[in-house]
């Protein structure tokens, strides 16, 4: 329960640092920086409209809480993965999509699998050779437990901090908070719950 505030605070600190770098830079300098991605210490974003990037990540899936019901949750930390594609609208903003998945064990040994599919909007900043982005995702998920499945809406908010290796690759860490509502209708509405979880781990971004 105490992991969430700590991780969010860390993520916000990273985002604030990147934003502060951007705020100190005049608009012209930001544009110039976008075209010179190899300069060490350059701030702003090294990307321009039409750039593309794909990323892979391997994560730990950390269940935070299940909202609703009267009893405690019983999920353990599991493993997750993700793949995403991003298209840059300008030097700072990109749109794209992601597919991810995570397995978490239950108290009695069952395995919960959740696979979200989301459209994502990302905001990029860089302090070469470092860069980072914040992402907001919206989509849907499919979940499976034993032979039962559910589909529902999905939202996420994430942050990644990366180091540019200089060969088109950037590697680093990411953390994504996920909101996973399980909505039941009609006479089964009493089963409605909302799961909150974090996926945090290693991410590798390749700039096409």
């Amino acid at each position: 329960m105490y992991r969430l505030p700590a991780i969010l605070a860390f993520a916000l600190m990273g985002a604030a640092a990147l934003a502060a770098q951007d705020a100190q830079m005049p608009p012209d300098a930001a544009d110039a920086a976008a075209s010179e991605i190899s300069d060490k210490g350059m701030t702003g974003s090294p990307y321009k409209q039409g750039d593309q990037a794909i990323s892979l990540d391997a994560d730990a899936s950390v269940p935070i809480i299940i909202i609703g019901g009267t009893e405690t949750a019983g999920l353990s930390v599991g493993a997750g993965f993700g793949f995403s594609y991003r298209y840059f609208l300008d030097s700072a903003w990109s749109i794209g999509g992601s597919v991810s998945g995570a397995f978490n064990g239950t108290r009695s040994g069952r395995s919960l699998f959740i696979a979200p599919l989301a459209a994502e909007l990302s905001y990029w900043r860089a302090l070469v050779p470092f860069e980072g982005f914040a992402t907001f995702g919206l989509g849907s998920y499919i979940s499976r437990l034993a032979n039962y499945g559910m589909i529902g809406p999905y939202a996420s908010l994430g942050l990644a901090l990366l180091w540019q290796t200089g060969s088109g690759w950037s590697v680093g860490g990411k953390v994504t908070g996920q909101v996973i509502p399980e909505i039941h209708i009609s006479s089964y509405s009493g089963l409605t719950r909302t799961g909150l979880s974090l996926q945090t781990g290693f991410i590798a971004v390749y700039h096409l």
Partner: peptide, 22 residues
Amino acid sequence: LLALACNNDYGIYASIQEEPAG
């Protein structure tokens, strides 16, 4: 197909909440 994979009458999170320890 996706809708068929959906069990409205079974609460996945709800069932996890009340599971006995393994």
